[in-house]
Amino acid sequence: MAEEERAVGEGEGLRGAWREAEHLLPLDEVVRKEVWEGSIPIRVELARQDVSTFEAPMPFYVQAPRMGYFPLVLGQAKAYFQNYVPAVCCNDREMWLEHKGNALKWHLPTGVLFDLHAHGEDLPWHLTLHFSGVETKGLLPYEGDVSLRRHFRQTLKQATSLRYGSCKRVNNLSVAQMEQLWSSLQENKFESFTSVNSELLKLSTPGPSGLTEIKRLPLRIYLPHLPSPIQQPFTPFKDDGHLTTLHDVLLQILPGLFETTRLSFAKTQEEEGEDAGDDQRPTVLVQGISPPLQTPVLWLCQQLAGADTFLYICVIPKSKDQEVFAS
């Protein structure tokens, strides 16, 4: 009898979730294309200690796609600077990018790195390109294009395994499709990208039973001072049938930071118009924007995911909390 009651409850929860979800799941090409076209103006200068000529070179400027990766745009910068650098150092293994003394991880999407380290700074984003000293920076080894491709595919498989419970959808892509996915990133072509990417995001079954294909939400939550992302399991909807919101996720993972958000809501409700409460809220960035915390995460995962189908969420604490993190 208890099992029957639970089954009925689960069915009701699923139907409730489907009523909320069915309008969110179709891929919104307008939103997705706008996200794809996001880019960051970047100014790259050569590290002073790597200049081997009398005159330092002028900086290199590039518009870098948010969804892409730094190695894809640094090929041009490397070609530009190579005449100023000792020949033995001018190779992929030695290159690394610095922002304010910190090495940037080449395997993260460019937009995530910007949101995490440079949100609110003046543009263009000022970066320094180094050709020496990479050994001490704790970066994954970069040995040319194949390193980035392989890492991208591994990450894609992780996200797919989270979402559906196995890597089969990635393994089932043909070689041509995988090559197309990669070349669309290299050449920044949305139509080419989305024709393969949508294969990974569409449900194969319509209706409520299709929603159960999504096992867990593929999330990676970054904070500036943490060495690695926070990954915990979240289902697309809760037992009561409501979709999991951004607030649900953040409150569970970072309760010390987002409990104040509750107070903020209460305060705002009581003293309408005052902004004092909002000042305590950390900045939450997805693809460079701050979604309302009540946004269903399922929608974010469908429309605002990175090219590897992970949803990257950057949480930037306020300066008061920075002290907490820095200690």
């Binding site: 943490l226 309760p255 930071l257």
Partner: peptide, 11 residues
């Protein structure tokens, strides 16, 4: 136990 996560009550 990275201190930042400890301070904000993370798992």
């Amino acid at each position: 136990h990275p201190r930042p996560l400890q301070n904000v009550g993370a798992d």
